[in-house]
């Protein structure tokens, strides 16, 4: 229930609000956090950005992993149980390795969206790529040149990352591609093929 509420809140509200809540909202508790001696942390935009982005992406990742664990075919888990594996051992040896492979494409999407989401930290005064572009625009009054350049840089990082991740996926699922003819993938209990990273993740 707590996990459900956490995931609903972080996935159901805009990241920008979450950032403001931590960066500006923490000011409301300044006397309290000052007493605890942690106020100097909340004064730092960088700390606030990390403190917001980490639980945010964790909520999306939790949803991906949940789906992947549920997608591991029942037969595998049952076979492992019949061999006497249970609990942590079953998860460590059977379910998690399969789930991670199934989750990889979706996780790549999530990582790309996180990368793009970091552009929001420029709104809470951090000078990341977007923040720098905005500062230079304010001085040079050449918005389209700078924003197009920044956009291209993001574009290159994004697709480089996607390409690398696709290669990793190919390697990890090699045994699924080179099946002998006739061994149909549609057999009950056959291993599911993971999808492809295609940038269709859940946005902020």
């Amino acid at each position: 229930m707590a996990a459900y509420g956490y995931m609903l809140y972080f996935r159901g509200t805009p990241l920008l609000v979450q950032l403001f809540l931590v960066y500006y909202g923490s000011g409301q508790f300044q006397p309290f956090s000052g007493e605890l001696g942690v106020w100097f942390l909340f004064r730092e935009a960088y700390f606030c950005a990390v403190l917001t982005l980490a639980p945010n992406t964790a909520a999306y990742t939790a949803e991906i992993l949940r789906g992947a664990v549920l997608a591991v075919s029942r037969g595998h888990a049952e076979a492992a149980r019949s061999l006497g594996m249970s609990g942590p051992l079953l998860y460590r040896r059977i379910i998690l390795p399969k789930a991670f492979r199934l989750a990889l494409p979706a996780y790549t999407n999530e990582a790309v969206l996180l990368l793009q989401a970091t552009s929001l930290v420029s709104i809470i005064t951090l000078l990341d790529l977007t923040g720098m572009a905005r500062i230079i625009v304010a001085r040079s009054f050449e918005p389209y040149k700078l924003y197009i350049t920044a956009g291209l840089i993001y574009l290159v990082i994004t697709y480089t990352f996607v390409l690398v991740s696709r290669r990793v996926e190919r390697r990890l699922s090699a045994h699924l591609r080179e099946q002998p003819v006739g061994a149909s993938a549609a057999q009950p209990g056959a291993e599911q093929k993971p999808g492809r990273a295609d940038l269709t993740g859940e946005g902020r």
Binding site: S119, E142, Y144, I148, G151
Partner: peptide, 23 residues
């Protein structure tokens, strides 16, 4: 689809709102 999905929304918003008129 390739360009839109590879660039953060914030950059696109800034580009359209400030970039297009100046262009």
């Amino acid at each position: 689809t390739t360009v839109i999905r590879g660039v953060p929304e914030l950059i696109l918003i800034l580009l359209i709102y400030y970039g297009v008129p100046t262009f």
